[in-house]
Write a protein that binds this DNA or RNA. Structure first.
Length: 768
DNA sequence: CTCTTCCAGCTTTTT
DNA sequence: GCTGGAAGAG
């Protein structure tokens, strides 16, 4: 097979030994995806039928990308029948198929986190519990934790450790909330995210014939990012692979950053206990980053205790040192970083898409955005509210959900009074009371609304009846009409479009665009399904919509933009230049992880992930003060900077005064000998001041501030001496002289900061 | 029932 | 500093 020639020795080993249990430890940038895709391609080439291969990933994006690459290797037809996808999407597929065995219908709804939280809030109200003590977030966290450890509500109540923890936290009734939560989900024909894994486990446990069927079916199982699996996922993999034992898991314990959502790093550390005859492959050569970056990353990860021994190395050239930028305020940090990006983009003629700014928390993005906008640097930002979490999108989807599954309680409550129909809380309370008494869903009450005459006043009954008829009318052609047609009918008929049309604010317009975009997506779905002769009906569209996220949407990677995202969401990606910003104590590592050594190790792995995203250059930045929750804080620079050997750093001045403790651990030997406080470890960059600055500073000061809202781009030939113009990086300036002809035409420009620059007009974008 | 105002909360995130 | 949710006024 030709494919195998494109791999190094270790990769080849991992790809060609397809039988038996294998653990592939794949360091950052070592070709992990390559191994997985080639291994699957290899299986297909050997004649293994695609539908006998199960490949599990953590994001839809990873699955889609792998499928694409496999198609390129062995042809589309071969790849299309692979069982490849996220844990949740694969198991929801199985669950829909087997739903009736567990007492659900094949059209069950999947609640997202917000739905789950709302349900918990409703239960808290029913139980008359104080929601300042029982916070929906915390309660959901406990339930989620239990589910991920396969503890059902009954078992929770029996579990002394859990119960005593809850009592100690002054929340003794969590088990009760859990119980009602589960009852109501079942009644609404609903599973939450954790159920998709938990219920599959129950299915495989209670129905041995089902277990056998899937064990037989999946001759080969592959798992990506194994270090991020939780117990529920771990057990599913273990069960399903028991028969053929052809299980290949790929991961990197050094990149485990999701323990806060139940991931168990020990799954990868203890693989050998479950599969004593396993084969171990280590991919330690990094192809992505410069030598300096890999060495620096190694400095960091060495400080962690629990890990599989390995040493990442790079044969790329050492490259630049890691530059450290210091700012006095968070605002200045933004200005410095964008300035640096402008400079690099300009002098090295790099594309904006070659840059990424990574931060620890989403809240940091705002200031950076402002700075980028000021400099007219295009950017795209990940995280924050995703498309499918927007209110208007969720509203319309709630209509779809209710039409497909009228028992969906959260969808019902969301739209019963949207757009406004004058059906308020007290009416819904009455409906709820009837529903609880008769042990039926809200929808069932609505269907027999005329029986409540007298209990609810006549005008309201009419309104409720109208709503009921509206939804029933939408549902008429559910099985015959395609998803796109019915979706458009709902968008119009529900009054959503009209409601949004009344709003002329930019936000309102954008909401309408989002609705249009959703309708386009459905249209696309229907057309594709029609072409490929698969199900093009609304229930089929809805099946996976909760499992979709923004990350899956193709943002047009070809657009020349800077990328802004959290370190978490950068995992798996790479960029030539990476800025890691906000490197301060209490932020990175986060404040809440500072006390726990285990949490601190995870933060360190997170920093390791950040560093290893970079191919050529890393720039780390910290600020001496920062707004946090409305208050100014001034934490010292992150201890992680000091954990990198000084020889890899450029421009870091240790601040002894600020934090004795980790300064003492990290300052250099030479520094201690010299006993000079605040002596730079590496020489700081000295910015060369042009000679002209002295005489021209007065002129420079007289250059007016540009009106940024009113800029027109200048043609190179229109630029003449004494002209005042604006440069996107350096700001306002005055042309001192022009020389050169044609493509060599250059301008010497005096800028407001007193510097004179020579600009090649062919490249420079200048504005009037 | 609806609109406004006030108050609490706040890592990370996929599914 | 910003957001979402709940309470209170109209």
């Amino acid at each position: 097979m030709d494919l195998l020639n494109e791999l190094n020795t270790e990769q080849l080993e991992a790809v060609s030994n397809t039988e038996g249990p294998s653990l592939v430890i794949a360091g950052a940038g070592s070709g992990k995806t390559r191994v997985l895709t080639y291994r699957i391609a290899n299986l297909l080439c050997k004649g293994v039928p695609a539908n006998k291969i199960l490949a599990l990933t953590f994001t839809n994006k990873a699955a889609a990308e792998m499928k694409k690459r496999i198609s390129q290797l062995v042809g589309f037809e071969n790849a299309t029948n692979l069982w490849m996808g996220t844990f949740h999407s694969i198991f929801s597929r199985i669950l829909r198929y087997e739903a009736e065995k567990l007492g659900y219908t094949p059209n069950f709804t999947i609640y997202d986190t917000q739905d789950s939280k709302n349900l918990i809030k409703a239960i808290l109200k029913d139980l008359q519990l104080d929601d300042t003590i029982y916070k929906a977030n915390d309660v959901l966290g406990r339930i989620s934790m239990a589910k991920n450890n396969l503890i059902v509500a009954d078992a929770y109540q029996q579990n002394e450790r859990l119960i005593s923890t809850d009592i100690a936290a002054q929340k003794p009734r969590i088990h009760e909330i859990y119980k009602y939560y589960q009852i109501r989900c079942k009644k609404s024909d609903v599973m939450d995210f954790d159920d998709l894994l938990l219920q599959t486990n129950i299915l495989l446990r209670d129905f041995p014939d089902v277990l056998t069927k899937y064990q037989e079916k999946f001759g080969y199982i592959l798992v990506d990012e194994y270090q991020d699996t939780n117990y529920s996922q771990y057990l599913l993999i273990k069960r399903l692979s028991e028969r053929h034992r052809n299980l290949c898991v790929v991961g990197d314990d050094a990149q485990s950053i999701y323990s806060f959502r139940g991931a168990r790093i020990e799954n990868i550390l203890k693989f050998r206990d479950d599969y004593p005859n396993y084969k171990l492959y280590k991919l330690e050569r990094n192809y992505r980053s410069s030598g300096t970056i890999v060495d620096a990353a190694n400095c960091i990860i060495e400080k962690n205790k629990e890990q599989i021994p390995k040493k990442l190395y790079s044969e790329n050239e050492a490259g630049e040192k890691i530059k450290i930028l210091k700012s006095l305020t968070d605002k200045e940090e933004g200005v410095q970083i964008t300035g640096e990006i402008s400079k690099l983009a300009y002098y090295e003629q790099q594309n904006y898409s070659d840059f990424a700014i990574l931060y620890r928390t989403n809240a940091q993005s705002r200031i950076l955005e402002e700075a980028l906008r000021k400099r007219n640097i295009p950017y795209r930002i990940f995280g924050g509210l995703s498309f499918y979490q927007r209110k208007e999108v969720k509203d319309l989807i709630a209509y779809f959900r209710l039409v497909v599954n009228p028992n969906d309680e959260e969808a019902f409550k969301r739209i019963i009074n949207y757009p406004k129909r004058s059906i308020g809380d007290s009416t819904i309370e009455k409906l709820r009371a009837v529903a609880v008494k008769n042990e039926v869903s809200l929808w069932a009450v609505l269907c027999n609304i005329d029986q409540l005459n007298g209990y609810i006043n006549g005008a309201t009954i009419t309104k409720l009846d109208n709503f009921c008829k509206l939804i029933t009318r939408f549902a008429l052609n559910l099985e015959t009409e395609n998803a796109s047609d019915i979706a458009c009918r709902i968008a119009e008929g529900s009054g959503i479009i009209e409601d949004l049309s009344n709003d002329d604010t930019p936000e309102g317009v954008s909401r309408k665009e989002n609705i249009q975009e959703l309708l386009n997506a459905i249209k696309d779905f229907s057309e594709t399904a029609y072409k490929e002769d698969t199900n093009d009906k609304l229930p089929a569209f809805l099946e996976n919509v909760t499992l979709l996220t923004d990350q899956d949407k193709d943002y047009g990677a070809d657009i020349n933009c800077i990328t802004l995202m959290t370190v978490h969401s950068a995992k798996g990606l790479e960029f030539p230049n990476v800025f890691i910003v906000g490197m301060e104590e209490e932020l990175f590592p986060s404040k809440q992880s500072a006390e726990s050594p285990v949490a601190l190790e995870e933060e360190r792995r997170l920093f390791y992930v950040a560093l290893t995203r970079a191919q050529k250059r890393v720039i780390i930045s910290y600020s001496c003060s920062r707004y946090k929750n409305g208050k100014v804080t001034s934490p010292p620079p992150s201890r992680f900077i000091g954990e990198i050997k000084a020889e890899y750093l450029d421009g870091f001045v240790m601040q002894r005064r600020d934090n004795q403790e980790y300064f003492a651990q990290t300052r250099s030997f030479a520094d201690r000998l010299n006993q000079q406080p605040n002596r730079p470890i590496a020489s700081p960059r000295i910015s060369a001041r042009p000679a002209e600055s002295a005489f021209s500073s007065a002129t420079a000061a007289r250059i007016p501030e540009p009106d940024r809202s009113n800029l027109t781009e200048l043609d190179a030939n229109d630029i003449i001496p004494d002209m005042v113009l604006v440069h996107p990086i350096f700001g306002a300036g005055k042309v001192v002289s022009i020389d050169g002809l044609g493509v060599n035409r250059k301008a010497r420009v005096l800028f407001k900061n007193g510097e004179v620059k020579t600009l090649l007009l062919k490249f420079a974008k200048l504005y009037k």
